[in-house]
Simulated scan of single mutants.
Amino acid sequence: MGVRTGFRKELRVFEVHKWGEYIRKSWENSFAGHLSKEEKNAIYLESFLWHLCSWKAVPCSTKEEAVRLFHAKQKDKCLIFYQYVDTVYLVESGRGLDVKDLPYDPFHMFYGDIYVMDWDKKWTFIMTHEGECGPYFIDS
């Protein structure tokens, strides 16, 4: 685990390698745990976790409302991860974490879908590689 550069200094971000698969599964269990395996297959959840929102399988906020809710949330400790990358960023002291701070590139094959999840798995914010889909915010 190393300190991640590129984030604002006051955000205390740690880069953790090889956590991606575990964190994605944890996210799925927390936010899509109410779905059966068949329901998950029907919305192609294995392809993109954000299909949970685009297929309306969970109540969520979208677009500007999702961004507003993300900014309003307390973000003392949260995780930032991607759909297809095994590096996870652990953010401590993330009170001022803003959408502009997220290491997000919608045109990059691997960094195009980004997820932010609070440490207690009570909310998540998602930005996708598809302009018409998202951002999304789920608050449990």
Rank of each mutant, 00 (worst) to 15 (best):
R4I: 09
R4F: 05
T5A: 04
T5P: 04
T5L: 13
F7G: 00
R8D: 13
K9Q: 05
H17Q: 11
K18A: 06
R24S: 06
K25V: 08
K25P: 01
S26K: 09
E28G: 08
E28Q: 13
N29M: 10
A32E: 07
A32Y: 04
G33N: 11
L35T: 13
L35C: 13
S36R: 09
K37S: 07
K37M: 01
E38T: 15
E39A: 14
E39P: 12
K40L: 15
N41A: 14
A42V: 11
Y44E: 08
L45I: 13
H51T: 12
L52T: 10
L52I: 10
C53R: 00
S54K: 06
W55V: 05
V58N: 03
K63E: 09
E65I: 12
V67G: 08
L69V: 05
F70K: 01
F70Y: 07
A72L: 14
K73D: 01
K75S: 09
K75R: 12
K75P: 12
K77Q: 02
C78F: 07
L79E: 06
F81N: 10
Y84D: 15
D86F: 09
V88I: 15
L90Q: 06
L90R: 08
E92W: 02
S93N: 15
G94E: 07
G96Y: 03
G96C: 04
D98M: 14
L102I: 14
M109S: 12
F110V: 03
Y111K: 14
D113Y: 04
I114S: 01
V116C: 14
M117F: 00
D118L: 05
D118G: 03
W119D: 15
D120H: 03
K122D: 07
W123K: 07
W123A: 11
F125L: 05
F125M: 12
I126P: 01
T128Q: 02
H129W: 03
E130M: 13
G131K: 14
G131Q: 10
E132A: 08
C133R: 11
C133Q: 11
G134Q: 06
Y136C: 02
Y136W: 06
Y136V: 00
F137A: 01
F137H: 06
I138G: 01
D139R: 08
S140F: 10
